[in-house]
C-alpha cells in the first residue's frame, strides 16, 4: 500500500512529529483529470479540504460532482493529477455503496480477512473479530454467509470489516479515518434510518474521523458536524455549513438553505 503512494508517506512523517491538531486528512489544491487531450474530463478542479481528527464531515453534491472520485483519491484507489493529499493513518477504512463482502466467507471470516491483510496475528484476530461484530451488533450472525444476511446486516459487516482494516496500521491511541461512499443509498428508508443512528453511535464510540459522501441533504445535515457542498463538472467546493448539534427548526432551516444552494449549482448546468 505505502509504496504506491510516495507523496503521502512523505507528509505522514511530518504529520507524526506534530501533535493533536494535524488533520485526519488534508487535501490541498487537488485536481483530477480523466483521459487525455480533447476527450479529457476534469473531475476535480482545485479542491481544498481538511477533516480534523474525530470530525464527521459530509461531502454533498449532485451526480458527476466527483465526490466518489475524491473518496477514491483519499483511499489510494486513484492518484491525483495535481495537488497533495496527506492522511494521518496509513490506511483509511473504506465502505462502498454495496457491502461487497466476499460471498464465500462467513461474516466473521470477512472481518478476519481484513485483520489478516492488516497484518494481525491469529490469536488476537479471534478476539478482535468478536469485538468488531459485537460493535455492529452482529455477534449472533458471525457464522452466517452474506446471502443469509439482509442488506442492512451486510452493510454493518462491511463497516466492521472497514474498521478492522485500520486496526493493524494505526497505533491504539491514534484515531483513524473512515471513508464512506453513499453506504446507505441502496437500503430501504427504515433500515437507513436505523443505520444512520448506528453509525453515529459507532463514530462516538471509536472517535474515528469520518468523510461521508452522499447526495441526500437531510442525511448530510443529520449525520455531519460539517457539510461540504461540491459543484458538478468540474468539482469544486461550492459551500460549507457547520451543522453540529442542530435539532428541530434550526436543522430544518439549514436543510432548506443547503437545498437551495444545491439547486442553484445544478441549475447553472442547464445554461452551460
Amino acid at each position: 500500500m505505502e509504496e504506491g503512494r510516495p507523496q503521502m508517506t512523505a507528509t505522514l512523517d511530518i504529520a507524526a512529529t506534530r501533535t493533536g491538531t494535524t488533520p485526519a486528512v488534508r487535501l490541498t489544491g487537488v485536481h483530477k483529470v480523466f483521459g487525455h487531450g480533447r476527450a479529457a474530463v476534469t473531475a476535480l478542479d482545485g479542491v481544498d479540504l481538511a477533516v480534523a481528527p474525530g470530525e464527521f464531515v459530509c461531502l454533498l453534491g449532485a451526480s458527476g460532482c466527483g465526490k466518489t472520485t475524491l473518496l477514491n483519491l483519499v483511499a489510494g484507489l486513484e492518484q491525483p493529477t495535481a495537488g497533495v493529499i496527506s492522511t494521518r493513518s496509513a490506511r483509511p477504512a473504506v465502505m462502498f455503496q454495496e457491502a461487497a463482502l466476499m460471498p464465500w466467507l462467513t461474516a466473521a471470516r470477512n472481518v478476519d480477512l481484513a485483520l489478516k491483510l492488516a497484518g494481525q496475528r491469529r490469536p488476537e484476530r479471534r478476539r478482535q473479530v468478536a469485538e468488531l461484530l459485537d460493535l455492529v451488533r452482529l455477534g449472533e450472525a458471525a457464522g452466517k454467509r452474506p446471502h443469509e444476511l439482509s442488506g442492512g446486516m451486510r452493510q454493518r459487516v462491511a463497516l466492521a470489516r472497514a474498521l478492522a482494516s485500520t486496526l493493524g496500521t494505526a497505533a491504539a491511541d491514534e484515531p483513524g479515518l473512515l471513508l464512506m461512499d453513499e453506504p446507505f443509498a441502496a437500503l430501504d428508508a427504515i433500515t437507513r434510518d436505523v443505520l444512520q443512528g448506528e453509525l453515529l453511535r459507532i463514530w462516538r464510540a471509536t472517535g474515528t474521523a469520518v468523510l461521508f459522501v452522499t447526495h441526500d441533504v437531510r442525511e448530510a445535515v443529520r449525520l455531519g458536524q460539517r457539510v461540504v457542498l461540491l459543484s458538478s463538472r468540474p468539482g469544486r467546493v461550492a459551500g460549507e455549513w457547520v451543522v453540529d448539534g442542530l435539532h428541530g427548526a434550526p436543522e430544518l432551516a439549514v436543510v432548506e438553505e443547503v437545498n437551495a444552494r444545491l439547486r442553484e449549482v445544478i441549475s447553472s448546468h442547464a445554461a452551460a
Binding site: L77, F96, A100, A118, S165
Partner: peptide, 23 residues
C-alpha cells in the same frame, strides 16, 4: 468491486490472487 476491496484492505498482488481472485 471485489478486487477493489482487496486493494483498500491493503492486499498485495499475491494476497489479492490468493484471497480474492482465485476463490
Amino acid at each position: 468491486i471485489l478486487p477493489r476491496v482487496g486493494v483498500v484492505l491493503g492486499a498485495n498482488r499475491w494476497q489479492a490472487a490468493r484471497y480474492v481472485l482465485l476463490p
